[in-house]
Design a protein around this nucleic acid. Structure first.
Length: 277
DNA sequence: CATATGTCCTGAGAGC
DNA sequence: TGCTCTCAGGACATAT
């Protein structure tokens, strides 16, 4: 479930590869089923070997590794992560990149469930192949005005709309529940009926929660899947107010109990008492 | 066009 | 103890 804070943490963690020259690109043999790669691995290898890493950036929930002309785009989706060596388990390393010279450094793309995607493209293709038609403004870059306008244009439940990457890039299931709780908005409220004042509260809660979660290096849930680039867990899970806390007392009003509902086949957690509207 | 549903995947945990 | 079943959800394809 890497969302914006986890992906941002991954990007920061692998920045030591900047300036390094790609020596080899491999798919370890023990992997049960190869993940989706575009183009196929032999082509990725041919184009990438010998290139020097210029930058590492985040685009929504994707990690972009740039050379002078190319971008290696890593999509962790559910259980993927990037690492400088250590991974949560020995299996499921989907891509392994070694760099020339010293220190001995490798970049790994690890993904237990294998829903992740690896793509290599020219840097000038990023806009047309990834952003256009798929990604809205980043949750940490968008203005309050744009955020409010975009929400106003849909009638979907606000929790469902927040997960739409075309509307807003970076927010996922976990942080959507958290930000709606802090701004005291019912997750089923149709977007178009959310007041301007509530939208401002939501916008402020979003900035606050995402920035704080980055400081805590993201959330590592009970399955222990997500780790930073050095294989250490994040700690924002200890700050969760509602996510995965169904049945527990609401930490905000202490009289309500956290409820779990399903919206668009995803769990939503909220307090029915302090998120009434 | 807007919105809803189905699909991929593996391992943890529940239940018998 | 050991088996089977369900569930977790990001992004995209397909359906309504």
């Amino acid at each position: 479930m890497p969302e914006l804070p986890e992906v941002e943490t991954m990007c920061r963690g692998i920045r030591p590869i900047i300036g390094r020259k790609v020596q080899s690109v491999r798919v370890p043999k023990c992997v049960c089923r190869p993940i989706v790669m575009r183009p196929k691995i032999v082509t990725i290898r041919r184009r990438l070997v010998g290139q020097t890493i210029q930058d590492v950036t985040r685009l929504g929930k994707r990690v972009l590794i740039h050379t002078a002309d190319l971008a290696l785009v890593l999509q962790p989706r559910m259980t993927g992560l990037v690492s400088l060596g250590q991974t949560p388990g020995p299996d499921h390393v989907r891509l392994q990149i070694h760099f020339a010279g010293s220190p001995q450094t490798q970049l790994l793309f690890w993904d237990r469930r294998g829903l992740g995607v690896v793509e290599l493209m020219r840097r000038d293709e990023i806009q047309t192949r990834i952003v256009a038609g798929r990604l809205g403004p980043d949750a940490l870059d968008i203005t309050l005005e744009d955020f409010s306008d975009r929400l106003s244009k849909t009638n979907r439940p606000i929790k469902v709309a927040l997960l739409d990457q075309k509307l807003l890039a970076g927010v996922g299931n976990l942080y959507a529940s958290e930000m709606l709780h802090v701004s005291r908005i019912h997750p089923a409220k149709p977007c178009s009926k959310v007041s301007a004042k509530k939208k401002r509260h939501l916008f402020e809660a979003m900035q606050e929660i995402l920035l704080t979660a980055i400081e805590y290096e993201g959330s590592t849930l009970s399955d222990g899947t997500y780790r930073n680039a050095l294989n250490d867990p994040g700690s924002y899970q200890n700050q969760h107010l509602v996510y995965d806390r169904a049945g527990l007392a609401c930490p905000s009003c202490s009289s309500g109990r956290i409820a779990r509902i399903v919206q668009a086949q995803r769990s939503t957690f909220f307090c029915p008492k302090c998120q009434r509207t």
